[in-house]
Amino acid sequence: MSVQFSGWEVIDDGASFPGLELNSSQKPRSRGVYTMYHGTSIKSARVIIANGFKQSSDGMLGMGVYVSRNIKKASGYPLLCSPTDRVVLQLHVRVGRVKRIDKDNHPMQKTWHSHGYDTAWVPPNIGLLAVRSGLEEDCVFDPKRVKLVGIAKAPNDSIQKELKGLIKSSGRGGAGAAEVCSLCKRKTQQGAPHIKQKCWECGKNICILMSKHLCPAKP
């Protein structure tokens, strides 16, 4: 039996659709998968593409992979690196269980993982002395939760092309040959096209995975 629709809108928090982009002030929901960014050097980008991410040995939030949902934040790293040597990697991050770190000298600032959390999250504009930019930041303990899917920013077209080629040849990138549904714009699984049907109210073609459909106003 088919389900008939005349209109809907879904507000997704990342738990349903991988790679969702949240506003930096939105709290990531546990078990969600979110689009984030990591700033690094050209040389390190090549190593990450070849071998995957490794934990930083220490930092403001302790051990882990440091990422941000704010591309501006990632674009400023590495700190002591020329802008002509900076690359921003685009990621899909499975955050797991998230701990909010919202004050200086937080009792779990570096020990959150030992308390059962997978990711530490610093919201934007909360006045932490260690985050002078006020931009959102995350630390993911397990590098396996961080998947490289593309190059968000590179110093020039040549480097962008080279790194994208390395991602493609390594098989690490998320931008493979998967088809994209023309209606919902989401990738389809191989051999499993999305179910499409006509809206019973307005007659437009719809996909059941569309996040929004509004019938045109009637005269």
Rank of each mutant, 00 (worst) to 15 (best):
G7Q: 06
G7C: 09
D13A: 10
A15D: 03
A15H: 14
S16D: 13
L20M: 11
E21W: 14
S25Y: 15
Q26S: 11
K27A: 09
P28Q: 03
R29E: 11
I42P: 01
I42A: 06
A50H: 05
G52L: 04
Q55N: 15
S56Q: 12
D58L: 09
V65W: 01
I71G: 01
K72G: 04
A74C: 07
G76E: 03
Y77D: 00
Y77P: 02
L80G: 07
S82T: 06
D85K: 11
K103M: 12
D104I: 07
S114M: 13
G116Y: 11
A120H: 03
R132Q: 05
E137V: 04
D138E: 10
C139V: 15
V146R: 03
K147P: 01
L148C: 06
N156H: 05
S158Q: 14
L163A: 06
L163Y: 01
I167M: 12
S169C: 08
G174T: 03
E179Q: 14
E179N: 15
K185I: 12
G191T: 06
A192L: 10
I195P: 10
K198G: 07
W200G: 14
G203C: 13
N205F: 08
I206G: 02
I206N: 00
I208L: 14
K212E: 12
P216V: 04
P216S: 02
